[in-house]
Design a protein around this nucleic acid. Structure first.
Lengths: 202, 202, 202, 202
DNA sequence: ACTTAACCGAGACGGTACGTCGCGTCTTTTT
DNA sequence: AAAAAGACGCGACGTACCGTCTCGGTTAAGT
């Protein structure tokens, strides 16, 4: 999980409970408003109830620690392949919305986003991995929709994907996620985007 | 502007250049990736090239300083009232997009957003104020569009507004604003949202 | 006194009381049994009642601090030149004995001696300066005694000086200085060394 | 020798080489300038090439360890009873001088002396014991000399003993033992002290 | 031969002290 | 009175070391 300990030849084993206690501490503190750069390994140790030593022993830098924290909140989901495009899109957005509603995960991602400049490789690595995989899932659904004839073939799929995803991302970024129903939110977005708001076709 | 100096009875005048130098320093450092809570008045003074005292003399707390910084980047724009709905919407989004691409303003808002918990009153004051005024302008345009018969009367206008605005906000939040054309971006969003992506009407 | 502060152009003055408080703290702690290498600037600061910063600001290393401490306990005395050799020797030994009896000075020198290896340049510098000057005073008295015809011309003056001084130094080294009368101790040594212990001349 | 191992009922035997390796390590490090209180069992273990456990298993405290180290370097010598006083004194001083020039023994005693306050019982036990036994040997020789009529009966024998021994002790305390010939050094001291330095009897 | 118990090295653990750094305040000199 | 310089107390940081505890693995005495 963490920066793997050197080939062990003996000695006392690391307490696995400490690992998760520390990661939980990070999530809690970030959810409570802490900044990634503002967090110190010392404060984390105190919150986790372990000695400073035990934190420094596991992670040399905050980057490594945060990477493990991010991996903890990132559990991959199977790609949807339902009957219709609207259902597939709803499935994709539901996964996203659930993550957005999860306070600790959302706070973590928001914090990472806010300090992308300070943690460039962490940000790059995480977003290239996670965001790309999500984006790919979305694009697959959309392309399938075009093939099925349910999506107009002349629309910019990237823009369309952006349009579908952005409302949720914006809410996560603003932290306004209290009254968000993961099921309903996506459905409304999909309907409006697909059907259009114009009263009369152009 | 700032915590107004005590009744002056004589002596050396405050250097007005210092005021702006300090505010510029904040904007630059935030744009360079600094966190609002991570910034210290000491660091700001160093960046601005003034003594610590000169900062503390003007602002007692970071909240007050940031307040002035925010007011600096917030210039209200006239509400649009053009010929058609698409044009009015484009005008609203153009204002937003311009702020988004402005690196320093965007960074400042993003930083404030990310630390809403740490600076609650600052956040409330600014986001509720700015966002509300923007939202009101947008809603006026949309309502006008319904009256004109250009927007379907059965759509949720709040959701629609969200849909139009979110892509730009999301880009600001992610900091990915390099290749954003303020004019074109809004136009594409408007067209797609109004016309819909579905190949056939429901 | 201490590593002289850089050319001052303004700003608050260093508190001179802190200087002496710190030096006093060192002397007290060493007299209480502390080791030179065992002493930390942190502990010294606590004992002196000042912040760690104030110590580190004045002395970068323990060597520099200890040098100042040593200079504090080292006040040069005028060389004696009395009527007779016994009186001159008594004067020299009295100065030494007084330093030996002074608990703090004695402890400091003992501590420095004990850790000569750890503080080589400090030890070298101090002993070459202080010990050499004392030794020279002693040698001058002895040579004068030979010229006066009061000291045998065939004795090794270095050995003789050693013989006179060593009992006091040994007592200082062993810390057994409680019941030492600075006046009487030297007188007894001088008489015995000059007159010899043998019952019959060789 | 050391805190005797618990009643053994089986199991692996202690490595006897470790015992001496540890004691040698202490002697080497002290001779290299280490302080008794500054030495840690951890550092000793590293120097000795054994694990920390192996040290702690043998000695619970530094006091106990140092006790064994001191016993290692303390081999009693037979009291001299030769033909004349000068020869007897020379024998006593030779034993002392040999211990003084032995770098490791001298360093150990010097270190213990310097930290008498920190290791009170260790210091008391060893110095009172060793010094007393040496002093007794010396006094016996001197009393015998008075009886023989070779030492003036009116001299303070304690002072005389001090005078004979101190030059060597002072050299040990100052660590300046490089060019010390154990045989010659004592002889010179004895001659000068017995014959006196005065050109004419008082 | 098998059990058992102690030894040994390696290393995790909580605790403590260190020297550094940065903060916000206070004090002094200069403008 | 503002400005710049810098001393000051305070507190957090990351490091290092200490003494203890806990692991496998090894070794030798007792069944």
């Amino acid at each position: 999980m963490n920066s793997e300990p050197p080939a062990r030849r003996g000695g006392r084993q690391r307490d696995p409970a400490a690992d998760s206690a520390i990661i939980e501490a990070v999530l809690d503190m970030v959810a409570a408003g802490a900044t990634l750069s503002g967090l110190s390994l010392v404060a984390i140790a105190k919150q986790a109830g372990v000695s400073r030593n035990s934190v420094y022993r596991r992670w040399k830098t905050k980057d490594e620690l945060y990477l493990d924290v991010l991996e903890t909140i990132n559990k991959p989901r199977p790609a949807p392949d339902g009957a219709g495009t609207r259902e597939d899109l709803a499935a994709v957005l539901r996964v996203l919305a659930e993550r957005v509603v999860d306070d600790r995960a959302g706070s973590m991602l928001r914090a990472l986003n806010a300090e992308a400049v300070t943690f460039p490789q962490l940000h790059r690595r995480y977003f290239e991995e996670i965001v790309a995989s999500r984006r790919e899932a979305m694009n697959r659904v959309l392309r399938h929709g075009v093939e099925r004839g349910e999506i107009r073939s002349d629309v910019d799929l990237d823009l369309l994907a952006n349009l579908l995803v952005s409302p949720l991302l914006a809410r996560m970024a603003s932290g306004d996620t209290d009254r968000l129903d993961p099921e309903e939110a996506g459905r409304q977005i999909i309907d409006l985007v697909l059907d259009g708001a114009a009263a009369t076709p152009r």
